[in-house]
Nucleic acid binder design. Sequence first.
DNA 1: CTATCATTCAAACGTTTGTTTGAAACGCCC
DNA 2: GGGCGTTTCAAACAAACGTTTGAATGATAG
Lengths: 221, 221
Amino acid sequence: MDTKARILDAAEATFAQEGFDRASLRVITARAGVNLAAVHYHFGSKEALLEATVRRRLDPVNRERLERLDAVEAAAGAAAPALEPVLEAFLAPPILALAALGERGRLIAHLIARVYFEGGVEPRRVLVEQFREVVQRFAGALGRALPQLPPEEILRRLQYGIGVMTHVLADAPQIHRIAPVPLAEEDAETTLARVLAFVTAGMQAPAARPRASVARASAAR
Amino acid sequence: MDTKARILDAAEATFAQEGFDRASLRVITARAGVNLAAVHYHFGSKEALLEATVRRRLDPVNRERLERLDAVEAAAGAAAPALEPVLEAFLAPPILALAALGERGRLIAHLIARVYFEGGVEPRRVLVEQFREVVQRFAGALGRALPQLPPEEILRRLQYGIGVMTHVLADAPQIHRIAPVPLAEEDAETTLARVLAFVTAGMQAPAARPRASVARASAAR
DNA sequence: CTATCATTCAAACGTTTGTTTGAAACGCCC
DNA sequence: GGGCGTTTCAAACAAACGTTTGAATGATAG
């Protein structure tokens, strides 16, 4: 019965390191110490295995997000919730959960970011569906916390915040390599505090009216 | 001689739609109307073709970034440049250039984001090297525009800004699909104004001191 | 102990892949 | 216009892939 779990662990590590397409089932099953056919027996296909791998890590994070949001809204009562606690409910679960997994957590974030950007049709669909409730709940809460902003602006800024989070978690650009000053490793709570400060301020920015003068474009009309 | 250009166009479209691994040279060459072996004759390998594809679009953008930054710094003279123009010099070139390419521009952004996250060792190295000068120049300018922030904080916030930009350009989450309100298509200058407002405000956030009390973590120590 | 189910295993299947090869076609200069 | 370097072409190569198969093995219940 732990065959399934062994496959999941090996698949997680391999998918994260190599990417979905480059990761072969032969490598995964060898790493797990199980037979090649076990993947199809237990999961059905390589794509379904990816889906299971992602869900195992993402489901608890999204659940905790909603729980935290429940708590924030309950504390606010009938009043509008404050902005920062709402954002913290969104950002803290993935940052803390992945940090708790150490180096493996970074790989997992990398994997999820990959699926987010690339990914076959099916895994991406699963990922997006997975986010539907989360996005809708948080969009509502942010709208109440920022009543001066139109709903459309709220959604776009939430998307920006997701971009920051994804980027930070996946450590995508490996900016350390080219940074003019050395960037020390920092613990999860410091990361969270930094990201929270940035996103909170960004969310509170005055609504940008569309303006044509700001850009002296070169190639745009 | 236009064989090379035809291959580049076809490769760009195919890589962007399918991803590097899934895009086969047979599809690319068929789309370009050239012989399969032409790729190796003109580029050497599939990976080198990806590299050429990315460079063709990214080089002009990074060049324009530096030119704009030159102009901003020249206008400021000996004084510190203002924050927003610096950020605009960073954000406007990719947003406007890709928008000028229409639907294809979105695909290209998607492709670059992919390489950024996944990517073989070599293409990613190229991408990172490509950014070295840009990151260093902008980190310096941002440091002068925000003298109250330590250099490390500057770099991290620049990384956050890159995350926002990458996410917006690549339209990664296809958040439209799950948005509670319909999100209208917007032109590039509106997008730029929105992103600029968000990132400018985020950059100006008060420096977050590491604090342990903010997070009542569930799984983290 | 036997029958029945779930699980594991080695082997093979058919496809597709990036790459290589050697000859054919082309364009250009003297 | 013959010769030469560049470019194109069809064909083949070996390797790797996800998936399937059918028998062997294990555990469970009657």
